[in-house]
Design a protein around this nucleic acid. Structure first.
Length: 164
DNA sequence: CAACCGATCACCT
DNA sequence: GGTGATCGGTTGC
């Protein structure tokens, strides 16, 4: 598991830095909702709004360890998990925000602004009890501003993170 | 209305 | 290790 925190007006790297727009409105809304955006003409990134209603903030899901639904995710990504390179193919399944979103079939049109805490939603986040300690904290990656903030959180030693 | 640029990835060398 | 693909959102003219 690997996530990055993005803050509000005082975080130049955050989409919410320059105020509320139609695109980033979810970040300013109530917590626990999905913020999905399109990047580089190719990829979607999946975030969860995190601060109280009216206060901008979110967490970007950069990577996670596939536990179930592996076959479905491989299919969604258009990769095969055949013997031989199966290990590296498995690691590439969800290691990176674009890959993760593709593996889950997440798109902006379908999945933006969903309540991830509502069991009736078709996209939710729950606690499955997977051991998430210890945590390692590093600067965020892939950005050009506020490079020094230690806001990237990864499960220490876990192989299913995007590589630096 | 046009230009710019980005919280990336896959493929080539 | 380097780089091209690709396009929506935002900003500036």
């Amino acid at each position: 598991m690997e996530v990055e925190a993005y803050l509000g007006a005082d975080d130049p790297a955050a989409h919410s830095a320059s105020g509320r727009t139609l695109r980033n409105a979810v970040l300013f809304g109530p917590p626990g909702h999905s913020y999905v955006y399109f990047i580089y003409g190719n990829h979607f990134c999946f975030n969860v709004s995190c601060l109280p209603d009216g206060e901008a903030g979110g967490v970007l899901f950069r990577a996670l360890e596939p536990l179930t639904g592996i076959k479905e995710m491989a299919e969604a990504r258009g990769v095969s998990l055949n013997e031989g390179k199966a290990d590296s193919a498995l690691r590439k399944l969800t290691s990176g925000p674009g890959r993760l979103a593709e593996a889950f079939g997440i798109t902006r049109d379908r999945d933006n602004a969903k309540d991830l805490t509502d069991a009736r939603s078709d996209l939710t986040i729950v606690d499955d009890g997977f051991p998430s300690q210890p945590i390692e904290i590093t600067p965020r990656v892939g950005i050009t501003k506020a490079l020094d903030h230690p806001l990237r959180y990864i499960v220490a030693g876990n192989k299913f993170v995007s590589h630096r």
